[in-house]
Write a protein that binds this DNA or RNA. Structure first.
Lengths: 148, 148
DNA sequence: ATAAATTATATCGCACGCGATATAATTTGT
DNA sequence: ACAAATTATATCGCGTGCGATATAATTTAT
């Protein structure tokens, strides 16, 4: 191992702490979300629906930067749990109209403690949190521009 | 949806851009790593071994913040590909001694282009990259202190 | 009008991550 | 010395993510 390979040292990767922190955050959420019978990704879907009340699968895919091969089975699981219901969009026979059930709507109240609890889990300053947020969204938005 | 639920809006989560960027980065690495017959996590393991030449599974777990249920099968796959070899540590019968094969060592040269290519993928400034790196490692290290 | 292209959703297979648990080897406590 | 506790690795089951591909409905092009 000489300095020619410095670029391959774990400590010189930006991707690794990103990956490790992402895993860490998912582990932290898990016990909280277990109480709501939600996985992390299911929680994200529910967040979109708590805001929008109604959405197609396509809208969920775009909102969460995921694809149908991830969301199709996940939506089925949320429907099986009774949190959402699927129907056909009458204006476009290809599209799903995904809506919250009363049970799914009620879950929002139980979820209010989740952001509260998570805020206590990470000891970074509000400035650091803001900076992190801003840089991460810059990466996401740069990518969206590139795709179009 | 009223302001009482603002904390549950997707845009107010820090976890979501973290998760989305992490997924994005993995997607970006994939075509590059396919050429080396490595997955992303396998690449991380190889990076540790390129630096250390020899490591136990425990060392790999600690280095990558992963557990044996993830790494045991992954190590087996790397061994099946001929990149590493497993033997018993003679000083501790429980531990594995994991070492690079010549093929695994040679792979490092083919991997040199990976950080190069990835650097071009993300249009953030060096300052932003540094800031991101520093905050992410702060989160990881705060967590390690808390565990101990 | 209708064939071709596009779009929205669905299916399949593979490789993780991780909670839970099991097994084998070593260390600790008395 | 030896039973109990700890440690290192392994196994199992589940839920993603995603590349590849399929299917059905809509839009586009001529």
């Amino acid at each position: 191992m000489n300095e020619n390979y410095d670029s391959l040292r774990l400590k010189n990767q930006l991707c690794f702490p990103l990956y490790a922190v992402s895993n860490l955050v998912l582990r932290k959420y898990k016990p909280l979300l277990d109480k709501l019978d939600l996985t992390y990704t299911q929680y994200l879907v529910m967040m979109v629906l708590w805001e929008k009340e109604q959405a197609s699968e396509k809208v969920l895919c775009e909102s969460l930067d995921l694809q149908s091969n991830t969301l199709t089975p996940l939506i089925k699981k949320l429907a099986d749990k009774g949190y959402i219901e699927k129907s056909k969009d009458p204006t476009d026979g290809r599209a799903l109209a995904i809506r919250l059930t009363p049970l799914g709507k009620a879950l929002q109240d139980k979820a209010l403690c989740v952001p509260e609890c998570m805020a206590k889990e990470f000891r970074i300053t509000p400035e650091e949190a803001n900076t992190l947020y801003r840089i991460l969204y810059k990466i996401l938005e740069t990518e969206k521009e590139r795709e179009s």
